[in-house]
Design a protein around this nucleic acid. Structure first.
Lengths: 149, 149
DNA sequence: ACTATATAGTTCGGTATCAAACCAAAGGAG
DNA sequence: CTCCTTTGGTTTGATACCGAACTATATAGT
């Protein structure tokens, strides 16, 4: 039976764990969110609140590392819920501006309030020190993957 | 503007990085796989080769931490490709046995050969020591999430 | 034995995601 | 100015995934 080298095996295990954690944590998070918000939708709302500036669908897609098509879909759902609006960019006929609506701001606050406690529970699983230790390595990995796709 | 506590913020960042890595690495991996195999499908084949014993859909779902419905769907696609077969369990009228076919074994070998090198490239992003350091913490997190869902 | 509960598996409706193909507008090279 | 390439956005088709509802079988409690 063919197998992977130990190095490859370790990487495979790592990515496997990461995939499962991603799944479980998204599902967990989503169950907390009000208004039928999904993680992807909440992330966009949160992003718009936290980071000032003009955000186009393309910039958002790049920020979240998803394809333009995926972002189109997520934005359409947010528009349908009245949480954002898409406006034409006067200086570029192709582009659009993504704008948070009043309702979008409110929904984001509510989601934050609902999800924060659930996030806190995770401290039982991992100490703050462990969390801080994990982040830089994962960022390195994420950046490498982004650069080499 | 409402924000998260620093602790919550760190956890949020962590889960965010994990989500993006999961996405990017699955997409990368999948592009390498032959026969239109997906990561989910390959994982099942690989699992059946590496771990002896009888595997039912329910056991596989638990092992991969997905719902039974998700596993049903993945297994149906593998059956359609002729890579596994589902057989009734003589001792339990509800259960089934998942069996790898010849073609399944071959496909798994081919996938391994195709994907191994791509996995190796990741060593450029993270040293073996970093990888080994990451795994235990992530496992702790995964196990906690599994237990508390 | 009968009933209630738990477990195995499927199906359904919805969202996210990708890749690929497409259109329209912008920018650069001649 | 015209052609070519790049960029912004949408659409389509496929897969994975969840949660919830459902059927059928098994097991436990009384």
């Amino acid at each position: 039976m063919k197998t992977l080298t130990p190095k490859q095996q370790a990487l495979f295990t790592l990515l496997n764990e990461i995939g499962i954690i991603s799944q479980l944590s998204s599902a967990r998070f989503e169950r907390m969110l009000p208004h039928g918000l999904t993680v992807a939708q909440f992330s966009v709302l949160n992003h718009l609140v936290r980071l000032e500036g003009d955000w186009s669908p393309a910039r958002l897609a790049a920020a979240f590392q998803v394809t333009k098509g995926t972002m189109t879909s997520t934005l359409q759902r947010l528009v349908a819920k009245g949480l954002i609006s898409l406006e034409p960019d006067p200086s570029d006929g192709r582009a659009k501006h993504v704008k948070l609506t009043e309702a979008g701001g409110v929904a984001r606050e509510a989601a934050l309030a609902a999800a924060g406690p659930s996030l806190g529970e995770l401290n039982a699983a991992l100490s703050p020190a462990e969390i801080d230790a994990l982040i830089p390595s994962l960022q390195k990995l994420r950046i490498w993957l982004d650069k080499h796709r």
